[in-house]
Design a protein around this nucleic acid. Sequence first.
DNA 1: CTGAAAGCGCTTACAG
DNA 2: CTGAAAGCGCTTACAG
Lengths: 339, 339
Amino acid sequence: MQEVTLKQIAEILQISVTTVSKALKDYKDVSPKTKAAVRNLAAKLNYKPNPTALSLRNRETKIIGLIIPEVVHHFFASIIHGVVLEAENHGYLVITLISNDSYELEKQQVALLLDKRVDGILVSLAGSTVHTHHISQIIKKEVPLVMFDKISDEIRCSQVIIDDWQAAFEATEKLILSGCRKIIHLKGPDGPKTSLDRFEGYKDALKKHRIPFHPSYVYTSKNVSIEDGYKLTEQALKDHPDIDAVFCITDLVAAGVHKYCKNHQIKMPEQISIIGFSNWLISELMSPSLSTVDQPGYEMGIRAVNLLIQEIGSKKSDEKSTLQKIVLPTKVLMRETTR
Amino acid sequence: MQEVTLKQIAEILQISVTTVSKALKDYKDVSPKTKAAVRNLAAKLNYKPNPTALSLRNRETKIIGLIIPEVVHHFFASIIHGVVLEAENHGYLVITLISNDSYELEKQQVALLLDKRVDGILVSLAGSTVHTHHISQIIKKEVPLVMFDKISDEIRCSQVIIDDWQAAFEATEKLILSGCRKIIHLKGPDGPKTSLDRFEGYKDALKKHRIPFHPSYVYTSKNVSIEDGYKLTEQALKDHPDIDAVFCITDLVAAGVHKYCKNHQIKMPEQISIIGFSNWLISELMSPSLSTVDQPGYEMGIRAVNLLIQEIGSKKSDEKSTLQKIVLPTKVLMRETTR
DNA sequence: CTGAAAGCGCTTACAG
DNA sequence: CTGAAAGCGCTTACAG
């Protein structure tokens, strides 16, 4: 590889490394003549400063770490896109790690990023994460941290989220306003706050419209998968043959409900209305197309990076950074699985 | 942040940095007593070597660069997953960059990774990439390189691909064997080799079965999008009302065909059979479900990383590495849009 | 068995 | 205007 170094330029020009470095950084105490000579040669040799040496000296890597639960996932893939693009625009590169929704992996990955001395970390929690001690470690080490989507209120850091409660409330209300009364909720596991908030939104919408809440109308999808959606629909219909709507934790689960209905000639939305969550590409293409909640992943990624870079900046200039909480708007998309 | 350094340990123990370093690396010329003392203290202080310092000394970053055309894309997201996971298993971290199918961005990104001194680079070419000079730069700088999926034959490097010709041949043949005779092909732009190979496979399958090839049966999808699929189907039916099948460059385009047929009450597969490519999640969920070619993204990512790490290894030990070409098997999945 | 020295590639306070 | 020196955190050939 043999990259060009300051030393080589200095030797060719018969001057000191110091002067070369200063000339390249446009210090005023270098003669215009020397400056020109150095710059010409540097350009000619295509000199690029060794970022590793810079990192060691400046104590910054210009690398951001990103930990997400999944990647083959419309919402999270959109987030990666936003993060990588925006980071690049600000001169940062992104190391992506995938926790695969595992608490253990997530812990290891946090340690990995910390050891690597990244300049900041972006985290969306794994579904199975219960304790957040590993996340506090990030703060304790004074590494800038921004959490997005799957956050924990135990951690004091900037956040970019959607209002899951609100979104679920609106989705459930749409179902109610369209005439549904026996509304099942296929919720996610109990760990993630997003899951809990959506569940609360569902309950509160029922309450507002004076529809009694039945705990037996709520089923938990452990794997948040198509299969879960399918099986839970089967179970729900066995338990309550007269249900008229299903609100799901995510489109993947809703796709399972959809499939079940299709296989069993249950008409959507006439017999059963369905609303999913996240607006995966699949939801638009199913037939009937799936009503869902649009969740702005790409923008979330961009905003999260911006907050993080801001914090990295304040840390460098020793300012105290104020914690920010950005709540992005969502929108219920009423398509063909709702009336 | 203030991380623990060798110096600190040395000071506390009143010995030299050299000895601390050696003790930690288990050099035999350090007394067991000293070793134990150093190790205990290091463990207690949770000492981690500064990777930046290591990089500077060892001339390796333990970082791999990955450039892909898209990320909100089932196949490429699967690849990221495989790459990140396998790299992690081998002690490497991955910097992901997204070219957004732009030649210009791809060029910049290659330069970015080279400047960053990553230990190796994984590339899948942008759709709009015509010249490969920027890729040759990687080889010229002697940075290990592996290309996958969207490769260029102009570049001499290890590759992980599928046999696009073969896959397209088989898909088209299935269509023929099921009785179709007027088979449209919605191909991709002319740049990418994958596009070209699939087109050839289509033609050769026709030839084998003595079905005349009509250039007018072939349409080019510029954006490789659902919209393109929709519009081109409309055009194709105007030009040739009697077509009985469509083979598409990818599932996204096939989804457009599917949508058009649905909207116009054209029965699939009775009136028109469709086969897509890549086995996106959507293909399974559409109804009728889309027949397609399964393309092993996750495995491709794993294999690509393994090849790359192998090359990084040979480079370090100054061996000459032999170029490898891995061709992963594909499978035509016959679902409901084919007879 | 221990440690001073040199070096990876850079920057900057300081002396001249 | 120029450059020697020190230092970022580590490793290793070498001397003792």
